[in-house]
Amino acid sequence: MPHLQFEINKKVSNDTKEEFVKEIRNAFSQIMDTGTDHIAISLREYDKYSLTIGRALPTDDICLMNLDIREGRTIEKRRELALKFMDVIKENFGINPKNQYITFTEHKGEDFHLVEKYLATWTSGEDPLA
């Protein structure tokens, strides 16, 4: 059950949020070769000066991402996902990719729990809730 966390220093409309979540969920499912029902997404909106990256100006829009995922994906897949997410952020929120920062944290499948069960170790093409 990935938990994909996004923090931005601007406010966006509910319509924009709805489209963003849909694109993120679909991108994760496609690139990481898994289903969608177990994907958790958090979007936190902060005031302009509440997030910073050293290379950005204080007035720039920023996006920080913390992606908690199950271990087992290659660095190539994680990099593909990172670049795709940066593009989705740019398209939906207008945030320059140079002002985005992503951290992946990998966990064993058993670290992710839903009411039905905990998840197994990731395998290609899986439906983790089946």
Score class of each variant (00 low, 15 high):
105 T>I: 07
24 I>S: 05
104 F>K: 01
53 I>W: 01
101 Y>E: 14
67 L>K: 06
41 I>T: 09
112 F>N: 05
69 I>A: 04
66 N>F: 02
76 E>V: 03
30 Q>H: 13
46 Y>D: 03
114 L>D: 08
114 L>P: 00
79 R>A: 14
12 V>T: 10
101 Y>N: 14
3 H>W: 04
97 P>Y: 02
124 S>N: 15
71 E>P: 05
40 A>C: 13
100 Q>H: 02
95 I>V: 08
92 N>F: 15
44 R>M: 06
85 F>L: 11
75 I>R: 15
60 D>W: 06
121 T>Y: 09
11 K>T: 06
40 A>H: 03
49 Y>W: 00
70 R>P: 14
78 R>A: 12
43 L>Y: 06
27 A>T: 15
126 E>M: 11
98 K>P: 00
39 I>N: 03
3 H>K: 02
121 T>H: 08
80 E>P: 03
55 R>K: 10
35 G>V: 07
76 E>A: 10
4 L>Q: 03
10 K>A: 13
81 L>H: 12
90 K>W: 01
61 D>P: 03
57 L>K: 00
8 I>L: 03
18 E>A: 07
30 Q>A: 12
32 M>R: 06
38 H>S: 02
49 Y>L: 00
77 K>P: 01
69 I>V: 14
19 E>P: 04
55 R>N: 12
33 D>F: 13
116 E>W: 00
81 L>V: 06
121 T>R: 07
86 M>P: 03
23 E>R: 13
97 P>R: 05
114 L>K: 04
24 I>A: 04
1 M>H: 07
67 L>W: 01
123 T>G: 02
70 R>G: 07
5 Q>A: 05
30 Q>L: 10
113 H>V: 10
39 I>Y: 05
3 H>I: 08
52 T>D: 08
111 D>N: 04
22 K>A: 13
40 A>W: 01
60 D>P: 03
46 Y>N: 14
123 T>E: 12
43 L>M: 13
90 K>Q: 13
104 F>P: 00
116 E>C: 08
25 R>Y: 15
15 D>V: 05
102 I>A: 14
26 N>R: 11
7 E>L: 11
130 A>V: 12
128 P>D: 07
9 N>F: 01
80 E>N: 08
7 E>P: 02
31 I>K: 04
58 P>F: 04
98 K>T: 14
16 T>A: 12
74 T>Q: 05
41 I>E: 00
82 A>H: 06
90 K>G: 03
87 D>A: 07
9 N>R: 03
37 D>M: 06
103 T>A: 13
55 R>I: 09
68 D>L: 06
109 G>M: 04
14 N>T: 09
90 K>R: 15
80 E>Y: 07
116 E>Y: 03
84 K>P: 01
82 A>M: 10
107 H>A: 09
3 H>L: 14
2 P>V: 08
64 L>W: 04
80 E>Q: 14
89 I>K: 00
82 A>P: 01
126 E>R: 12
123 T>Q: 13
108 K>Q: 15
45 E>I: 00
36 T>H: 13
106 E>F: 02
90 K>H: 09
49 Y>K: 02
34 T>V: 12
122 W>A: 12
119 L>K: 08
127 D>S: 10
